[in-house]
Structures are given as structure tokens and as C-alpha cells.
Amino acid sequence: MRWGMVIDLAKCTRCHACVAACRIEHFLPLRVTWPRLIALETDNGYDVDVSTYPVRCNQCKDAPCVDACPTQASYKREDGIVAIDHDKCFGCRYCVIACPYQNRTYLSRKRNPNYFPEHAQTRFEKMGKKLYPHQVGTTEKCNFCHERIDAGREKDLKPGIDRDATPACVNTCQPRALTFGDLDDPNSNVSKLIREKSGFVLHSEYGTEPSVYYIDYKLGGNPSNKAPVEAQTGSHIQHLSTVYAPSKPKLAKKNAD
């Protein structure tokens, strides 16, 4: 099993929702951003290309950052995710330099001001310190939301298919430009996309074997405009107009965790 992501460059709209979702999911310090968008805009004289590349930790199979880490704080999980044990990291920033994709950020005190620097912390920030503490003086990066994956798999959910086991950025993406799944499974959604749309990775020549793939193509040219049955019936939303949600006291679900 090796979790991977396929990013659809044709669909990405540069809306930044993935960044916002990540900030909420991980209570990110104000000046740290795990997933980022890079704008590539070229004009070679006859063809203009306006593209947005969402980048995040590539979770490389042969990860230079893991090899470089002097304390083994960065390590490779069995499911292919490169994770960081923040209790082991001593903040040497060698991995920040060694990552060929520049996807790691050292959390300095300057990167960690209050949301409103001149003012008191918001309740969200305070709660974040409890629920998802960040350690100043260590290095951070995208972790493919492995907290969500682990919690979801305990409930037998499938990452990439079931929302509660899927990274937050994938869930929130409005154009559905992000797809998540198992790269080792040839029938998974990601493997199929890579195969059918000739997925590529960034800087394959480094030999790092990233788990984040990109696909790019021209929009339009679809052979049929016939709507599938579920779209015709609106079945995916139909229940909303007929079924009542639980009554309000129940709506505020109490969760003992």
C-alpha cells in the first residue's frame, strides 16, 4: 500500500481552498503553509500557458529528507507517507535544504505569531494549541493528513473514497482536481488516472519516486454530452428535498471522544 495523489492541472482554478482547508485541519501557524500553489505563466510567442501547480510534500519513495535527517525524526511509514516525529526533530533544517521540492518549512518563532499579531489569540488558536500542538524550533510539512487516514482506517473506511479517511484538501477541492488513493493497487482511482492521462511527477530525474502525480490535458472534446442516470435523477441530492434531517437537539451530535 502506498498512498498517492493525482493532481489535475487542467481543472485546478488557483482558488486556494486546499490551503485554507489545510490551515483549519492542522491549525497551521500563521506563516506556515503546507500545500502551496505555484503559478506558471509562459508565452513562447505563439502559445500562452497559464497553469497552476498545487504542490505539497511528494511523500517520495526514496525520500532525501528521510536520509538526511540526523535524528530519524523524519521517517517513512509503511503506507508510504513520510512523517515527522516532532519530539525527535532538533531543528537542523538539513531536510529543508535537502528536499529537492522545497516542501519543508522550519517553524521559527517569527513564523508563529498570533493570527492578529497585536491582539490576543483567538479561541480557535488556543484550542489548536491543545488539539494539534506545533513545536517551534522543528520542521513541518504536509503529512497527507495521516491523522485522518489512520482514524478512518480504524473505522474500515477507504482513503480517497470515504471522506473521513481522505486528506482535507482533497475533500474541499471544488473542481475535484485532487484525487487520492493507493498507488500500489493497479485498479485504484489514482493508478487509473495516471495510466489513462499519462501522469507525471516533478523532477523524475532525481530518482526520488514521488507519490504525487500530475495530469494535464486540454478541456473540451468530450465525445458525449449525455448525462448519466444519477445526474438526471439528481439522486445524489434528491433525498434532501424529501427527507428531514434529525431534529435540532439531535443535530448537535454529541461525540464522546
Binding site: 535524528t71 530519524q72 525527535k88 517553524l107 522543528t138 520542521t139
Partner: peptide, 24 residues
């Protein structure tokens, strides 16, 4: 270092990082 007092984590027996890491 961001966390200097953790420097001992980089050498054996606390870590095997020297196998791959030039820093260690």
C-alpha cells in the same frame, strides 16, 4: 539548532541516522 538540547538524538545508541545522514 531549533531544539539544541535534543542534540544527543543524532548519535548512537539513540539513533541509527549515521547510516544515511551526513549531518549525523
Amino acid at each position: 539548532l531549533g531544539k539544541p538540547w535534543r542534540f544527543w538524538r543524532s548519535f548512537p545508541p539513540f539513533s541509527n541516522a549515521w547510516k544515511t545522514s551526513w549531518f549525523a
